Simulated assay, not measured.
Amino acid sequence: MRLGIALRAFWKALFDRAAAERVAIALDAPIDARIEQPTPAAASEPTAKTAPSPKPAPAQNPAITLLATLQRDARLIDLIYEDLDQYQDAQVGAAARPCLKQCRQSLDRILKIDKLVASNESEAITVPADASVARYRWIGESPASDGGTAKLVHPGWQATEMQLPQWSGQAADAEIIAPAQVSAS
């Protein structure tokens, strides 16, 4: 159960800024504050009957929605799971080129992706002393303590907007990435 909660929190925080902030607050709160203990007065009060809340509409994990979009538009999963050992490199490249172009078009449509650092590779940049490990990853040895000057190896990427398609399926189908395709024989 804890693994499921951790994975749900990870994906939710990855694609939803407000959820990420709530997770950060929950993780940073003192343990005593995280556990709500019923007060003696509250425990002795009779509970009022409330009307059952309406069943929430089925939802699909944003990661599944993104994968489904990339599969539908570019057949990305088909390419990834294809046994490429049976093909020559030129054939793999010829198949990958249109897939990658379609993936980029899909990502451009549903996400605004920008470089995390606006400098070019191999340029010297200043890494703030309080830099998050999610923003800067030192390759090799990092300075003894505070940030400092470093050579940019890769600028990183960040999503600045996300407009995933709204899923409207049934709860039983929430984990389907792509339907099986069939034809009359």
Rank of each mutant, 00 (worst) to 15 (best):
Y87R: 02
I125L: 06
S106E: 08
Y81R: 05
R109I: 09
T69H: 01
A159F: 05
P52Q: 09
A42V: 10
A48P: 04
P52H: 13
A94E: 06
A59L: 15
A150C: 02
R135N: 12
L107D: 03
L84F: 13
E175G: 09
D108E: 10
Q102W: 07
Q170M: 10
L116Y: 13
I125V: 15
T39K: 10
Q86N: 08
A96D: 05
C99E: 04
R17Q: 14
E123G: 06
A94D: 03
P155Y: 10
S185D: 08
A171E: 07
I139S: 11
S185N: 02
R72H: 07
A9K: 13
P62N: 02
E141M: 07
R2E: 08
L107I: 15
A96H: 03
P38R: 12
A68I: 05
L100R: 08
K101H: 02
W11T: 05
V133L: 03
V182R: 13
I35K: 14
L107C: 01
E161W: 11
R34T: 08
Q170W: 14
K12V: 09
G169S: 01
A19C: 00
V127A: 00
A43T: 15
P38V: 15
A180K: 12
E121W: 12
W138V: 12
S185V: 09
I177H: 06
R97K: 14
E82W: 09
Q163I: 02
L3F: 06
K112E: 08
G169W: 11
P54D: 05
V153P: 00
E141P: 07
D73K: 04
S106C: 03
A13H: 06
S53V: 15
A20E: 12
V92W: 10
K49R: 10
L107T: 11
A150F: 15
D173F: 15
A48H: 11
S44E: 07
D89A: 01
S53Y: 13
Q102S: 14
A26E: 13
L67A: 04
D83S: 02
P179T: 09
D28P: 07
D73L: 09
